[in-house]
Amino acid sequence: MTAFAPIKTAIRSPRGGVSAAVLLLVVVCALFAPLIAPYAYDIQNLPGANTEPGAAHWMGTDEFGRDLMSRIIYGARTSLSVAVTAISISVAAGLTLGAMAGYFGGWFDRAVTAVVDLTWSFPEILIALILIAIIGPGLESTMVAISIAYLAQFTRLTRAQIMALKNETYVEATTNLGAGHFHIIFRHLLPNALTPVIVAGMLATGDAIILEATLGFFGLGAQPPTPSWGAMMSSGTAQIFIAPWIIIFPGLAIAITVISINLFGDALIEALDIRNRLRSV
């Protein structure tokens, strides 16, 4: 079985196939936004503000006369790049911390567990808000805040996996053969603990998109004129009675993307049979 086999299996399922197609479309929009978007995202045309959806502007214009569809397409770039980068950092850090804590145990494990449990007890949005209040608003701050907010989740998951695996016979055999700790962790334990963490990372990416949108809604994420779905919804609230499309289309973009990620994540879980594996662990 190759590494891509579970993905192929997931895509073959109806919900996996549909969600993968939608996600592919979002990723293409994000990667090729300058080629796909019909207008520049930041060029204002104030006399054309709040134009209804029509032939010239399929999703209408916002309160500055900017083409909403172009901003949503560019917004995919913001949302995905923030969410994917933040979760990647979080997964990498969580894997390292969790693996070391689970493998070595002792004071290091207790310290990591204490910090992780502390952050685990707060909702991610609260941690992110506190961090942004300290480091200031902006795109980079949002990435850092989201990655730290989700760190506890991956650290706990990895630690639990490593603790279950480290007493396996093949690990004992490798130890008896004289392998070093880092060789055992990175060559034997982590590869076997990786799959549930990756799937959890994928599902967390959906949550991270919502968190990024929430922070953007509060004006703490990407700063104008950089388009962010959350910030677009925020500015749309002021126009909700005049131009409801400003809030509806970015809201739909968030909903469709997050639902697709979750559906594909579910399909992947089934393809990998992770629930049964976790149950047996």
Binding site: Q44, E63, P225
Partner: peptide, 15 residues
């Protein structure tokens, strides 16, 4: 500062 009016004027000033 926060507030619809300030943010709107500021974005136009930026442009």
């Amino acid at each position: 500062q926060n507030g619809t009016e300030f943010k709107r004027v500021t974005e136009v000033v930026q442009a």
